[in-house]
Design a protein around this nucleic acid. Sequence first.
RNA 1: GGCGCCGUCGCCAAGUGGUAAGGCAAGGGUCUGCAAAACCCUCAUUCGGCGGUUCAAAUCCGCCCGGCGCCUCCA
Length: 463
Amino acid sequence: MTDIPLRLFDTYERRVREFTPLDPAEVRLYACGLTVYDYAHIGNLRTYIFEDVLRRVLEYNGYRVLHVQNVTDVGHLVSDADTGEDKMEKGSRRTGKSAWEIAEFYFQAFQADLARLNVLPPHIWPRATDHIAEQIDLIRCIEAKGYTYLARDGVYFDTSRLPDYGYLARLDLEGQQAGARVEVGEKRSPTDFALWKFSAPGEQRQMEWPSPWGAGFPGWHIECSAMAAKYLGPFFDIHCGGEDHIMVHHPNEIAQTQVCYGTRLANFWMHGYFLQVDEAKMSKSAGEFLRLQTLIDRGYDPLAWRFFCLGAHYRAKLNFTWEALEGAATAFNRLRIAAHEWSAAGPGTPDAEFLQRFQADINDDLNMPRVLALAWELARGPLPPADKRATLLEFDRVMGLGLAEWQPSADEVPAEIAALLERRQQARREKRWQDADALRAEVRSAGFEVEDTPQGPVARRAR
RNA sequence: GGCGCCGUCGCCAAGUGGUAAGGCAAGGGUCUGCAAAACCCUCAUUCGGCGGUUCAAAUCCGCCCGGCGCCUCCA
């Protein structure tokens, strides 16, 4: 608990403002989930780490949080064109699995990634395909209010009827129209979007449902409005997602909800900014992308990725380079080793002044880079080790680096390496330094680094 | 064409009016038979460039240069 007010940046108002819960008993948080047609890449994961930090900060402030995150397990069109291919069906053809299997497989993989990053799972994880009825109901509501029109390929939302459409994005509708590059198709205006899409005539989709307008599938914005309203009500505390949602997805969610419920859906709109690789966005459509597993295969602890993400503010782009990741991994290791060594000193007490500064930093729009700097100041400062550890573990309630349970792991050493180490020890006892160094070189060329400790030599797998 | 962001040490990155956080790397040192690991010290009079406002600017304003994102599935 803290007396420092929590201040968060709200994209809707484009400013940092004090957060006060709509209902003091429970903060309601909705996060846009992943479309599970492929693995998550490390850029996707950066956003979920940001949302996890947000949730942990809310909880650190003493709030009980109800966290809902959707699973988009129904395909949406790859492009805006009528003939656009469905991502789920595309994945199905690529792998030979059914669209349903694809969704399940990648949803599991996504959950595993989040778990490896210490991202707390949402309390409710609603799937779009489990809420078709809710989505149809919402579309009917929008239709009843007169904000839809029927086109050959689906039911559309008529954005021209909403005077403040796109306020979140500060859209300039005139400018949009002047420069639209998008195929408008049957849409009356470029910002209109599908609420329900009809299955293409003569094409059997794996995922389709009957509806009052014809067989098909929901548009990709409607699921969030429908499921958020179902689990959190039509007006809740915080809605978050990636920065890419500021322009289209979130304005559309707001438009749908506004028409049906008269609210702007969420009190705070928060957006995590993109990870860039070599100063450019990493995109799935471009083919190659980095997964968490890619980093693990290169010898990195998945939590080193979390540590790396913590080093930049969530509202700033983060540029990925292997050199920077290596730096984060080294720093993270030093910090966790230090924290482990402090544990030998027994239980301690968190330092009040550090705690105060920590709370000021997290409550200042989740300034985790400063928390990291504070952790180093703590680590290298004069406090008793036990108190350092107690303080750092408090920080870790938000950092989520698993410092409390971490133990240095002695790598499994193959028998032949162990034998070399023993021979080296023998040489050292006999002060045959040349032989000892030659043996160490042998161990090293086998991929292990030798460390002589007071308890004897230890071999670690080199990266 | 529209909306918006960014340019801070070799790399990553805080800092939005009061005189440059932090991490990594690098250099030096302690320890060590030598290393490694760990620890300690050092490391941007300067914030893309040029003007302007101000007692004071990396922070505000203007122009220029460079980079990027969204507007289309996207975290």
